[in-house]
Structure formats: structure tokens, C-alpha cells
Design a protein around this nucleic acid. Structure first.
Lengths: 221, 221
DNA sequence: TGATAAAGTGTAATAGTTACACTAACAGGT
DNA sequence: ACCTGTTAGTGTAACTATTACACTTTATCA
């Protein structure tokens, strides 16, 4: 038992994990194994340990519940409305993560019954206030495309300009002009040719590019 | 005594309060009356009540400690590094507030020994990790000038274009061209003439403007 | 070698941003 | 009455960035 002179809320982290697969933006959800909302889909997350930083906690929970690790992770917002969890007062620090489609190798772990990717058109109703958290993450992601190089986080080490353009088109839900897109993205001076090509299918091979400073997200103009 | 099956961190809110006075950006600080960091300057803030929302808690603490109320308030970021408070594990949800210079009427309240406004060049060292919180708020404020109408929150109901321009210049720390600024700000269609003028000093009176939708901060292009 | 499919490339029109200097209106002093 | 000092208010031209738009290249496969 842990006792305090005045009441303390519980603190959790929840993570909105995005990837792009099958030409779609996908959200990672777990099916809840325990009460409350047993059997409902929810964002991965859990309680913050007493000796770990918030971001550490988010990475740990993500790893434990889904097997995902080493990805881009950014704090989103904190949610703390009384009553958002029926058990006790719970304040959650929400994060969002972007993972390259190649890296998605899920495992269902101990405290999650099942893990799955859901397209934006096939989202189930979520437990707690996770709909609200997701909506904010979706919005932040879209906004950040315009003023940062966050989109690169969806791609592996090497990628073609068409793949990169597709990331933008999927998130922004609108087609982009190929020439203008290339002009723009190259002018950012954030990617460079690897010298290699990707040859797949009965057509001209595409030049491969890499991010010049991988792991960093630059703020642009 | 309040007891739990597993340990809970304490949760606080801290508020970075900005105003513009004497042609300077100022930060509101309180001198700590109790331990730890007794006598040191710190951001206003305090523990979140079990039945109040996070933003409510921020407004209440701000009102209690400084007498400031009814102002623009936005969640900034959450800080939770273990050891950031020497007493126990404390996670803080930081907010920032903008208040019009006319509204600043401070009172030193119960749990704060003293309250004061500090210019950016005269900031004392702050308690806890409040320097870090302040730095992030300063940065967010500057960034938001570019893509929102947040700057209007520093002004009263009626203001001149020169006053508005001055807000931008002070926060961005660089002079702006008067004609270009006016062209730009009027094109936003967020302010309108009141029809009145402000006559002060031995020179041409300035037209007064008001925000068309007061209380809302618009995201611009 | 012809069909198919995606990769790759430039230019002109338009819109937005920047640089820049003088006149207008008031208060106060002579 | 008029001169001085001080801030308010105004337009245009050059430059930069963004948009619209269509054909050629290079591969595979039948």
C-alpha cells in the first residue's frame, strides 16, 4: 500500500501509433483484456512508473503491448477530465508515434488481448476518451506535414520520391502535382540521392533517396 | 490518508504568464513561501484537485496565487522527469497564459510570498525545472505569432495598429515595416475599425480597431 | 519490338512578399 | 497664426514563391 497525505491521481501514457500501409493511414489499437472496457479497442498505453520519464514510459508501454520500438515519438497533449476513467482519477499524457511500414512486426503481448492496424475508414469505437486523443493526433500530424519533415518518419532508410509524395497525399487526402512536389521537397535540402535505384515492375526504375540527418525532424519555413 | 495499491505521482499545473508592458515582454513569477526552493522565484502553479479538470486547475491556481483571471490559457507541455521535485515524484502539466497589459492588477496571495513581473533581460534563476518550461513557452509563443491570431490576446478591447505591430515586434525581437504589417494584418480579416480614435500626445490620432471574434484564436494560413 | 507503366523533367502565369518615402493630423510653444 | 515635433496613415514596383500543365525516358513482359 502506498499512502499520501492528500489524494493523488493515477498517471498514464497513451500512444497514438500511425503507419502507412496499403496506401492508407493506419492506427494501431489493442483490444482490452481487462476491465473497464474489456474487449473494446483502445490506444496502447499504461501507467507511468515512479522512476521513469514520461517518454520512457510511453516507449516501454508501446514495446510491451505491441512490440514496436525505436520509433519517432512526440508528446501530444495531456488529458485529465475527471471521470474519463471509471475506476479512479486518471490523467494521461498522450504521445503519438510514426512508424515506417517496413518496421511493423506486431506481437500481441501480455496485457493486450489482440493488436491490430485500422484504416481511417474502419476505426472501431474506442475506449475511454481515446477518440478525442486520436482526433487530436490526426490533426497534429496533418498540420506538422506543412512545417516539418515529420513525413520522412513513415519511410525506411531508402525511399523513392514517389513513395514520399504518396505519404503526403495519403495524410492530406489530396493529390499533389508530381513536378511541384519534387521541386519543393528537394529545395528543403533534407534528402539526398543514395546513388542506387529501385527496380520493381515493368517500368523505369526510381532513384533512391535518404534523409540527410536521419532521426531528426526539422522545422521548415 | 489516501492509500493506493501501487504508487501514484503527484500532479500539478504550472502556468507561464506573459504580458507586454513598458514595451517589453514580461513574465509573471511568484516568490516561493515554502520549501523546497523557499525564497526562490517560480512559475505560479499548484496541485490539481481530484474533481477539477486540468485547465480549471490552472485557472484556479492562477487566480489564487496572482489574482489573474479570465485570460487566454493554453496547454503547453507536460514535464515529468523523476527528481524534478525533491519531495516526491511530481508530474506537471504546464500551461501558458497571455494577458493584456491593462488587465494586470496583481495581488500577492496566501501561498505566495510575493508576485512580480520580470522582463526577459532580468529573469532570476527559477525553481525546479521552471527555466525549461519557460523556455518552451517563449518559443511556442513566438512560433504561434506566425500562424495564429494569438497576439491579439495581449491587447484590450480596442487598440491601434501601431500597438498591435509593437506586440509583434517585441515578441519577435525585430522591427517590422509599417505598411507591410498593416496590409498583412488587415488582409487576415480578423479585426475591424471601431470608428473611434485614440488621441494621445502631440500628433495625429490613431484609428481604433477591435477583434471581430473576441476570445477566439484563429489559425491563419 | 510493341504495349504498358511509372519515373523523370521545365516553363510560363499568378500570387504573395518585400522594400521603400512622403503626406496628414494633432499638441504645444512662440 | 504659424512653426516644430511626433506619430498615423498610405501605394507601387521589384522580387520571390507557388501553381498549372504534358511529354519523354526507361524499364518489363508478351
Amino acid at each position: 500500500m502506498y499512502c499520501y497525505d492528500y489524494p493523488h491521481p493515477a498517471v498514464t501514457v497513451d500512444i497514438v501509433v500511425f503507419t502507412i500501409r496499403d496506401e492508407q493511414l493506419k492506427l494501431l489499437l489493442i483490444r482490452r483484456a481487462g476491465e473497464p472496457y474489456r474487449g473494446k479497442w483502445a490506444l496502447p498505453g499504461g501507467f507511468v512508473g515512479m522512476d521513469e520519464d514520461l517518454e520512457q514510459a510511453a516507449r516501454r508501454e508501446l514495446e510491451e503491448e505491441t512490440g514496436v520500438s525505436g520509433v519517432y515519438l512526440e508528446q501530444l497533449y495531456s488529458f485529465g477530465k475527471p471521470g474519463r476513467d471509471p475506476r479512479e482519477r486518471v490523467i494521461t499524457i498522450a504521445y503519438y508515434a510514426l512508424i515506417p511500414s517496413e518496421k511493423i512486426q506486431l506481437r500481441a503481448a501480455t496485457d493486450a488481448e489482440a493488436v491490430g492496424w485500422f484504416g481511417m475508414d474502419e476505426l472501431p469505437p474506442l475506449a475511454f476518451d481515446h477518440d478525442e486523443i486520436f482526433a487530436m493526433a490526426r490533426q497534429r500530424l496533418e498540420a506538422k506535414l506543412d512545417y516539418s519533415t515529420i513525413a520522412f518518419q513513415f519511410l525506411g532508410e531508402e525511399f523513392t520520391l514517389s513513395e514520399l509524395q504518396s505519404v503526403y497525399e495519403i495524410i492530406q487526402r489530396e493529390p499533389l502535382d508530381k513536378r511541384n512536389f519534387r521541386k519543393w521537397v528537394l529545395a528543403l535540402e533534407q534528402i539526398e540521392e543514395t546513388g542506387d535505384e529501385r527496380r520493381e515492375g515493368a517500368h523505369r526504375p526510381a532513384k533512391l533517396y535518404r534523409v540527410i540527418q536521419p532521426g531528426t525532424v526539422a522545422i521548415i519555413k
